[in-house]
Simulated scan of single mutants.
Amino acid sequence: MLEGNAIVEIDGTEHPVTRFDTTYVPTSTPHRFRNASATEPMRILWIYATVDATRTIVETGVTARVDAEHAKAASRDNG
Rank of each mutant, 00 (worst) to 15 (best):
A74P: 03
S28N: 15
P41G: 11
H31I: 02
L2G: 13
A53N: 00
N78Q: 09
T23V: 08
E40G: 02
I57T: 06
A73V: 09
E40Y: 01
P16R: 11
H31F: 02
T13E: 14
V62E: 14
S75H: 15
T23P: 00
T27L: 09
A38Q: 08
F33A: 10
H31K: 00
Y48D: 10
V8K: 06
N35R: 04
V25F: 00
T54S: 00
A53K: 02
T39V: 07
T27I: 11
R19D: 07
H31D: 00
H70W: 12
I57Q: 03
T13A: 12
A68F: 04
I10N: 05
I7N: 14
R55G: 09
T29E: 07
S37T: 03
A49I: 01
H70G: 15
K72A: 14
A73H: 05
T63M: 03
R19V: 13
A6S: 14
R19S: 08
M1H: 09
H15A: 07
H31W: 01
T27H: 09
R32Q: 15
G61N: 04
K72L: 11
M1V: 14
A53S: 07
N5L: 11
T27Y: 07
N78A: 12
E40N: 10
R32S: 13
K72F: 07
A71Y: 05
R65E: 02
T13N: 15
H15F: 13
T39R: 05
T39I: 05
V58T: 13
Y24P: 01
A6L: 10
L2Y: 11
P26S: 07
D67W: 06
E59H: 03
D52R: 03
N78V: 01
N78L: 09
V25L: 00
V17Y: 08
